[in-house]
């Protein structure tokens, strides 16, 4: 069973639609008991960081995520809040990595970074199996995680940033696989096949 974490901030319906192309064995929930029984979790994210952290706490699922030992995929904001801190709403995040999340510099580029960006991928990461390098994915974000040792895919808008990351069982993508056509569906398929 795949659990989609429903914390009231996000395009959860879009994620459910895309997952339904792959499996019917999905549950959308904010109940820690339901989520803790899932074999893998997805943390979607369209929203604002401090609002999302507040909602996760209100639903009582912050610690469930931090201590989860099944594969978890964070999407967009769901990836960013794996960081230590976000400049969006100046909030502490889940702290799964020491990397903080920063705002793009509006004086140097169009913000938000909105659209399809060529993404350089690390072929060793199972999330990117059957995908070619320089694949286009759909991004929509004003904040970014700098490139670090956990980065498994990257993009550049003048500033290089993390397009995907892995920390043990935690996977994150800055782009929206649910909105990236067939390449995005492949990412979700790869994630579903991790266990």
């Amino acid at each position: 069973m795949t659990g989609v974490i429903d914390y009231g901030a996000g395009n959860t319906a879009s994620v459910m639609n895309a997952l339904s192309d792959i499996t019917k064995d999905i549950v959308k929930s904010s109940d820690p008991e339901v989520l803790s029984k899932c074999g893998r979790l997805i943390l979607p994210g369209v929203g604002e960081a401090s609002f999302a952290m507040k909602r996760l706490a209100e639903c009582g699922i912050t610690s469930l995520i931090k201590t989860c030992d099944v594969p978890l995929l964070g999407i967009c904001l769901g990836m960013q809040i794996m960081g230590s801190f976000s400049e969006e709403g100046d909030t502490h995040c889940l702290g799964l990595t020491n990397t903080p999340v920063k705002r793009f510099d509006e004086s140097k580029m169009t913000v938000p970074n909105m659209g399809w960006c060529k993404t350089k991928i690390n072929n060793n990461c199972k999330l990117f199996q059957n995908l070619k390098n320089d694949q286009y994915f759909y991004f929509a974000h004003s904040y970014y995680m700098p490139v670090s040792e956990i980065t498994t895919a990257l993009c550049s808008t003048g500033t290089e940033f993390t397009a995907a990351l892995r920390i043990n069982n935690f996977y994150g993508v800055q782009f929206h696989p649910e909105k990236s056509g067939s390449a995005g569906i492949q990412i979700l398929k790869n994630f579903m096949e991790l266990c």
Binding site: A9, G10, N11, V46, G47, E48, F51, L77, P112, M114, A140, H141, S142
Partner: peptide, 9 residues
Amino acid sequence: AARQFGSQA
């Protein structure tokens, strides 16, 4: 709306 759902939405 931006505060709740993010500017990008």
